[in-house]
């Protein structure tokens, strides 16, 4: 029975990486706002300014935040029947849902269990069901939520303890699409320099490569909930990332399409857009799934 692994306060950052490496200054060689990357950054900037204004407006400083957290533990008598525990956490400016549960665990109930690690939306450990929607705990500002904030484990996955769910099935589906670069004809090691990708191709798969395996999309998907064999948005997006990568050969792409065009692959997607809406990394999942459907149809038409 493994519970919490690290104390968040002691897990110091060892890598001196500069933060916000994505934040590129506006005066770079790429021209104007034309590139999708520039547009994304612009949107990100606007969103940030917006959020700051909002935070300043409804200043919760000094108040406490009321959170209701789902509790379940098969090994503790009183917790075998799931229940909600209430915590009142002192609010601090910039507090995230993850900060709130960390505070609740450290100060009120050390048995409160949840996964978390990097606290900057990269590790993908802390996707919770917050106020009826799949969100990343570390990326969700408490000030943006209605109180009491209801924090539950991801739906459609078995609850192991408190906010911890069993991710095995999700990982199985991810592995089913062979999420690694494959190339039959890697250049001879003598002239093996770099396998270059064109900027356009990079741009095409860029969003799909942002997946952090948090499982929010899979949890939000109504079809994945009903059909256990459905690959799910994350795995299909992963397949998209490699299938659309020009550095892989045509045969490998066909092989990848054969995996996703199974009955429980792309065809099950009903374009409800649930996954796209909850994705904390803003990956246009539905768009990618749709494109794979068209690719698969095109491939089959060629053989007729």
């Amino acid at each position: 029975m493994s519970t919490q692994q690290q104390e968040p306060d002691t897990d110091a950052e060892t890598e001196p990486e500069e933060p916000e490496s994505q934040e590129v200054p506006a005066d770079q060689e790429m021209s104007g706002l034309a590139s999708p990357q520039q547009q994304r950054l612009q949107r990100k900037h606007d969103g940030m300014a917006e959020r700051e204004r909002e935070a300043a407006e409804d200043d919760l400083e000094g108040d406490s935040v009321h959170i209701k957290v789902f509790r379940y533990d098969p090994e503790v008598e009183g917790k075998q029947e799931p229940r909600f525990d209430d915590f009142h956490v002192p609010f601090e400016r910039g507090m995230t849902v993850l900060d709130a549960v960390i505070y609740a665990r450290d100060e009120f109930d050390s048995s409160l269990t949840f996964r978390h690690s990097c606290r900057q939306a990269i590790c993908g450990s802390d996707a919770f069901f917050v106020n009826g929607r799949q969100r990343l705990g570390c990326k969700t500002q408490i000030s943006e939520l209605d109180q009491p904030v209801r924090i539950e484990p991801l739906p459609h996955q078995e609850v192991v303890k408190d906010l911890v769910v069993d991710m095995d099935h999700f990982y199985d589906q991810m592995h089913a699409v062979e999420p690694y670069f494959q190339d039959e004809d890697t250049p001879d090691s003598a002239d093996l320099e770099e396998q270059r990708q064109s900027p356009e191709n990079r741009e095409k798969i860029k969003m799909s490569s942002r997946c952090i395996w948090c499982g929010a999309c899979m949890s939000s998907c109504n079809i994945a909930a009903g059909d256990n064999e459905y690959l799910g948005p994350a795995a299909i997006n992963k397949a998209y990332k490699f299938a659309m990568d020009d550095r892989e050969s045509e045969e490998i792409k066909e092989h990848r399409l054969r995996i996703v065009e199974q009955e429980h692959g792309v065809w099950r997607c009903q374009t409800q857009f649930s996954c796209t809406e909850v994705c904390p990394k803003d990956i246009p999942l539905t768009e990618h799934i749709q494109e794979l459907k068209r690719e698969a149809v095109k491939k089959n038409l060629k053989f007729w």
Binding site: D172, Q173, H175, A176, E178, E229, L231, R258, I259, E261, Q262, E263, H264, G265, V266, W267, R268, K293, A296, V297, N300
Partner: peptide, 17 residues
């Protein structure tokens, strides 16, 4: 779990039709 997805493709034609 790739074995599970190794059969003939019944979905595509139906989807297109």
């Amino acid at each position: 779990m790739a074995e599970r997805y190794s059969s003939f493709t019944p979905g595509g034609t139906g989807w297109l039709l």
